[in-house]
Structures are given as structure tokens and as C-alpha cells.
């Protein structure tokens, strides 16, 4: 879809210094959006900055026809986006890209690094927690960031949350992958694995690579949501590719905007030398 959508809400949430915003958009795109997909948003009606901004969908309300997006103020594009007010209209393309698999029963392990939590929110929302038990490992810089990125929502949502922070201000001091390593070595893991354990992750590339290694070494199926600099958002320009290894062993490119952003971790080549 390529259309103008109305802004219902666009405001800073949590600690202002963290620069986290929640953007709620009205429109039919919510009817067809799936967890893991993104919207390609035009932040300026001039040609500087030129390109649209791909932002992952964090919440989908099909009945109210609303899509929720969280974003962190990082550069000119996100700065311009903060200026849109309630009842303004934004030009979007989307929903675009591939989606997370939504398990119908068993155990779901989510691993998030920083703002990588945002697309995972849409997956959590799509899960029937009566049938699927969600375990979330989430790492961030500090407690202020985690609170701003809506930790309270997670705690209230019934998800089993484990936290790590770089400065030790909340949870384990260190990396989220420390938590993952600890978890796969714990005896309780056996029960989870007997109950169809699958996993999904989003975060910085280094964190995803480490996560993929641990999950694949332990036979836990993993989907990852990748990020890459993007132009067209629909597979035409080949700007945002990632490298994958096909079943026959050959190395290929896939488009993060089209075949992705969600990929099976076992096909991703993390340190492509080409």
C-alpha cells in the first residue's frame, strides 16, 4: 500500500533523554500488517533528506485499524519524524517485508538487543499466551533505556522477562547473550526443548551473530530480523542485501526489504567476505 495515514499519537515516552517515541498511525495498513513487517515512512516533503525511513511495526490493532511504531531519535530523519503532530498525515509504503512465524503452541524464546525489542513487541502481541509460553531475554544500556522502551508493558503482558544492562543498573551486568548462554546450559532447558521451543531475535548485528551461534549449536530454530541501509523498500534497488547460504551451499544475496527483514538464522552468512 502507498497512502497517507493519519497520526493518532506521536510523543516521547519514558525518560526524555533516551529519545524514545511512540507513533500510532490510523489506516487500512493495519488490516494486512503482520508481526515483523515494517512501514516505509516519508519524513520530509522536500528532497533533503531524500529517502524514506523504514521503521518496524511494534503493534497491530486490526479492529481499530491502528499501527504502533516505536522509534529512537538518532538522526535527521527521526528528528523530522518527531515534528508530526496528532491529525497530521504521513506518507507510508507498507506493510512491507517478511514476517515472523507465529507459533501456535509450545515455547517461544525471544532475544532482544536494545531497540531490537520493537519488532518483537508485534510478535508478542500476536501470540496466544494461553498456548505459547514466552521467554524474553532483553539487553540494554541501562535501566533508563529499558524503562523508556516500555519495560512495564512487558512485565504486565505476562511474558517471562530476564534483563541485562551494560552498566548493571538492572538485571545481569553484561550482554544479553550471557543470559542466553546461561539459559541453554540450565537444566530447565530440557523441558522447554521437549515442548517445541523456537526462538526469534532482533538487535545489533554482532549480538545477532552471537545469538545465532548459541541457538544453532543447541538446535533451537531461530528467526532474526535484520537491519540494513535501505532505499526503495520494495526490492528494486538492491541496496539492502544480506548474504545467505542456500541449501546447496552456494552463497547468494537476499534483499532485507523484500525477502527479509525476517530470515531464518541458519541461512544467514554473518561475516560475508564478498
Amino acid at each position: 500500500m502507498y497512502l497517507k495515514v493519519r497520526v493518532i499519537e506521536n510523543r516521547s515516552i519514558g525518560h526524555p533523554a533516551q529519545g524514545i517515541f511512540r507513533l500510532v498511525l490510523s489506516g487500512q495498513a493495519a488490516k494486512i500488517a503482520k508481526p515483523g513487517q515494517f512501514l516505509h515512512i516519508q519524513v520530509s516533503d522536500t528532497y533533503d533528506p531524500l529517502l524514506r525511513r523504514p521503521l518496524s511495526i511494534a503493534g497491530i490493532d486490526k479492529n481499530k485499524e491502528e499501527i504502533t511504531i516505536y522509534y529512537k531519535l538518532l538522526g535527521r530523519g527521526t528528528d523530522l519524524l518527531t515534528h508530526f503532530k496528532e491529525n497530521d498525515y504521513l506518507s507510508i509504503m507498507g506493510p512491507l517485508g517478511s514476517e515472523f512465524t507465529v507459533p501456535q503452541q509450545g515455547e517461544l524464546l525471544l532475544i532482544a538487543g536494545g531497540i531490537g525489542i520493537f519488532p518483537l513487541y508485534s510478535l508478542i502481541q500476536a501470540i496466544d499466551q494461553e498456548k505459547v509460553k514466552i521467554h524474553l531475554l532483553w539487553g540494554g544500556e541501562n535501566i533508563d533505556f529499558l524503562e523508556s522502551a516500555d519495560l512495564k508493558y512487558l512485565v504486565n503482558s505476562g511474558v517471562n522477562v530476564k534483563i541485562s544492562t551494560m552498566d548493571g543498573s538492572l538485571g545481569h551486568k553484561g550482554l544479553v547473550t550471557d543470559l542466553l548462554q546461561e539459559m541453554v546450559q540450565d537444566s530447565s532447558m530440557i523441558a522447554l526443548r521437549c515442548n517445541n521451543l523456537v526462538s526469534a531475535a532482533c538487535g545489533p548485528k554482532g549480538m545477532l551473530k552471537a545469538t545465532a551461534e548459541i541457538c544453532l549449536n543447541n538446535d533451537i530454530p531461530l528467526e532474526v530480523s535484520l537491519e540494513e541501509r535501505m532505499a526503495c523498500g520494495i526490492g528494486a534497488c538492491l541496496g539492502c542485501v544480506c548474504t545467505v547460504r542456500g541449501a546447496d551451499g552456494t552463497v547468494k544475496r537476499k534483499r532485507v526489504c523484500k525477502e527479509g527483514p525476517v530470515f531464518r538464522a541458519k541461512e544467514v552468512v554473518w561475516d560475508a567476505e564478498c
Binding site: 531524500l50 541501509r229 532505499a231 544480506c242 548474504t243 567476505e273
Partner: peptide, 11 residues
Amino acid sequence: RLGNPVPRLAE
């Protein structure tokens, strides 16, 4: 051709 490595784009 596989083309060049990423990042391939800069605004």
C-alpha cells in the same frame, strides 16, 4: 554477480 558488500547506500 553478487555485487558489492554492504553498506551499499549512503544518503
